[in-house]
């Protein structure tokens, strides 16, 4: 991709889990994407497509039996894959922060909100209770929590889901990270609160100038918040494009299928159009393109050989045989009619 100011470049990341005496399950298999500075990258995909494992891999929080097998995670020119655990700890929460899916369980029930936000300051800036209290209150104000002086002494169980997610965001942003990874930050919240939290993340992004990786399975969230999108399927990025391009002119049959399956308000529609078939199980991956068994255009080539991630057009990437010279199916294949 042309842009030189990428804060993060992930290149051919491979994360596998080794279970039952060495049996390998490839959760993330060759993921490549860039996160431009100050922009938001959306990672979409269904459950089990490797979104969250990608996020945890970036922070190197993969627990045994999982392992980052190869690839590069390039943060401002430094490859995180080679970093020691000690060096990673300095990066976590400081340069890269993460917020999690479940605000109900992502806060420690035995500590007050204030104590938990204070952790960030204690870990990275060595601040004591007195020095950090003011900062904690400021942080709570920033994430839109009313009367922070009172909230600071409350326990997580005294707060609603939306409030807790705000506290999570405050914890993550306490040390001014340059990159925020939000792993389905709104999945557990109801729709109105979802909109508020997304808006809050956007506002804070503008204010603090950070980049965001937004992991979600909700294309609506992507359309609203992201600048770039990486579509994941079975541990691989199948399409990477600017958000407008992706919605206007999706190229990969999987992306097309996803967009087609959304309910539309502009035409009369009796039924939704699903993508037929199911996701192959990770220990029984097809040899060729992992989407081939469900793809309406798949040929023998697709079933037998895995396509590479190709760069087409302006910064777009796609993993599909249709867009290569080797394509042996219908040359007229037009995958999307707007």
């Amino acid at each position: 991709m042309g842009s030189e100011n990428n804060i993060l470049r992930v290149n051919n990341l491979q994360t596998s889990f080794f279970i039952d005496g060495g049996h390998e399950i490839k959760a993330v298999d060759g993921v490549t994407f860039d996160v431009p500075e100050g922009k938001t990258l959306g990672i979409v995909g269904e459950s089990g497509s490797g979104k969250s494992i990608t996020a945890l891999s970036i922070l190197k929080l993969i627990d045994s039996p999982g392992k980052i097998k190869g690839g590069e995670i390039n943060l401002k020119g430094e490859n995180l894959v080679d970093k020691t655990e000690k060096a990673m700890r300095k990066i976590r929460g400081n340069t890269i922060s993460m917020i999690f899916q479940e605000p109900m369980t992502s806060l420690n029930p035995t500590y007050t909100v204030g104590q938990q936000i204070r952790e960030s300051y204690k870990i990275h800036q060595g601040l004591g209770k007195r020095e950090s209290t003011e900062k904690v209150i400021e942080m709570l104000k920033l994430v839109g929590i009313p009367s922070p002086e009172k909230r600071i002494n409350q326990y997580p169980f005294e707060l609603s889901g939306g409030m807790r997610q705000r506290v999570m965001i405050a914890m993550a942003l306490a040390c001014n990270p340059e990159l925020l990874i939000a792993d389905e930050p709104t999945t557990a919240l109801d729709v109105t609160i979802q909109a508020q939290i997304l808006e809050l993340i956007k506002e804070l992004q503008d204010e603090l100038g950070m980049s965001v990786i937004m992991i979600t399975h909700d294309l609506g969230v992507v359309a609203e918040t992201c600048d770039f999108v990486a579509v994941m399927y079975c541990g691989k990025v199948v399409e990477y494009a600017e958000v407008k391009t992706l919605f206007k002119n999706p190229r990969h049959p999987y992306t097309v299928g996803l967009l087609k399956s959304l309910p539309r308000s502009d035409i009369d529609q009796l039924e939704l159009i699903p993508i037929k078939g199911t996701v192959p199980s990770p220990d029984n991956m097809p040899e060729g393109c992992s989407f081939a068994p469900r793809c309406p255009f798949a040929t023998e080539l697709c079933h037998d050989h895995l396509p590479d991630l190709l760069e087409i057009g302006d910064g777009e990437q796609i993993r599909c045989w249709i867009y290569t010279d080797d394509w042996d199916g219908d040359p007229e294949v037009k995958v999307y009619e707007p």
């Binding site: 300095k90 929460g93 999690f100 870990i123």
Partner: peptide
């Protein structure tokens, strides 16, 4: 996980 992601 969250506290590990903070660098503890």
């Amino acid at each position: 996980d969250a506290i590990r992601a903070l660098g503890a």
